[in-house]
């Protein structure tokens, strides 16, 4: 871990001006991802701007449209155990609790969860090539050990995945990211927040220089998915492991018919993977395996597996069908009983 200077931000404006004036500066809050990567020498910031004393980034509050606003500094565990969120957006509750561990969730923040880097062996090992860590050095995972890597939306530069569970649910719930920067505040729809690697895999998201995530908001109407939802995560051990494939599924049912649907995948792409076509294919249809399979096929269309991760395509298809079945039956996946209903 390199030496760096430390600045404890007093105000949001102070933090932004530090970030703008020093391109080598990075922001720190929960530390669970950044400190980890600094010890691997993957991140070597010249300055750390500590956001944790900024009260304006704290707190979970209700919004006028019946939705919720989650401050960027709110720890994952506060999101997970907030009763209002559990009532309105249980999909989010479940996704958060499917990720990491109680200790990590106590430290990791909402903003940090959005901005965590990838899960990739090569990104984490400075002795190997990685375009995300060191643009132009090559992608070690292509042709390498890539069982955990992306099958959708990858490029010939990078096949890393976004590691978050929380973000898969936020994507499915069409959350909005509030950011503040040198040019003022702006709101980014969640689906526009993360990006595919393309030929700039070093960029995980669409934040501009000096911008800081302030909060994530959930619209009131997203709470209509509070009855029929699930977060289904498949991994290499039953807890404390990243997703090989995860599915956030949420439905609004009108009798036996699907009135609205949300479907997002984790562990398969550089960002939570959604496609309006897949959701549209569900709307108006009767809930059932055939319909679910069609949606899965649309969502997975164009999947490009590598040497070791071809299984993810079929696994994702099956997981989507199962997740939609769980959602339709209003039997969300239990987090402690590992049997998959």
């Amino acid at each position: 871990m390199n030496r760096f200077s430390y600045h404890r931000a007093e105000t949001l404006a102070d933090a932004i001006s530090h970030l703008r004036s020093n391109p080598a500066a990075a922001i720190i809050a929960g530390g669970t991802n950044l400190v980890d990567l600094m010890k691997y020498e993957v991140e070597r910031p010249g300055e750390l701007v500590d956001l944790t004393r900024l009260d304006e980034l704290r707190g979970i509050s209700e919004t006028p449209d019946g939705g919720m606003r989650i401050g960027a500094l709110v720890p994952n565990s506060d999101v997970a155990y907030d009763e209002r969120i559990a009532k309105l957006y249980p999909l989010l509750t479940h996704a958060v609790l499917a990720g990491a561990t109680p200790q990590l969730r106590n430290a990791a923040t909402t903003g940090g969860n959005l901005n965590q880097r990838t899960r990739c062996y090569y990104f984490n090992d400075v002795a190997t090539p990685c375009n995300k860590r060191e643009p132009g050095s090559g992608c070690g995972a292509i042709g390498g050990v890539n069982r955990i890597h992306a099958i959708l939306g990858a490029s010939d530069q990078c096949i890393a995945t976004h590691p978050s569970d929380m973000c898969v649910a936020l994507s499915a719930l069409d959350a909005t990211v509030e950011v503040a920067g040198p040019d003022g505040e702006r709101r980014i729809s969640f689906r526009e927040y993360h990006r595919l690697p393309g030929d700039e895999p070093q960029r995980d998201n669409t934040l501009r220089q000096g911008e800081i995530v302030v909060a994530v908001t959930l619209a009131g109407e997203a709470s209509y998915f509070a009855e029929n939802y699930t977060y289904l995560k498949l991994r290499d051990r039953l807890s404390y492991a990243f997703a090989l494939v995860s599915v956030a599924a949420a439905l609004q049912l009108d009798g036996g018919r699907i009135a609205a649907a949300r479907l997002a995948l984790g562990g398969v792409s550089h960002m939570p993977w959604r496609k309006p076509d897949a959701e549209n294919a569900l709307v108006g249809m009767a809930a059932g395996e055939e319909t679910f399979t069609r949606a899965a096929d649309i969502l997975l269309a164009g999947a490009q597996p590598h040497e070791h991760n071809a299984f993810k395509v079929d696994l994702a298809r099956r997981a989507i069908v199962r997740a939609l079945t769980q959602a339709a039956a209003a039997t969300p996946q239990s987090l402690s009983d590992k049997r998959i209903a």
Binding site: Y6, I28, G31, T32, V35, D36, D50, T52, P102, A107
Partner: peptide, 11 residues
Amino acid sequence: RINSCLQLAVM
């Protein structure tokens, strides 16, 4: 409960 290895002491 928190993993102390990922917390900077100064914070």
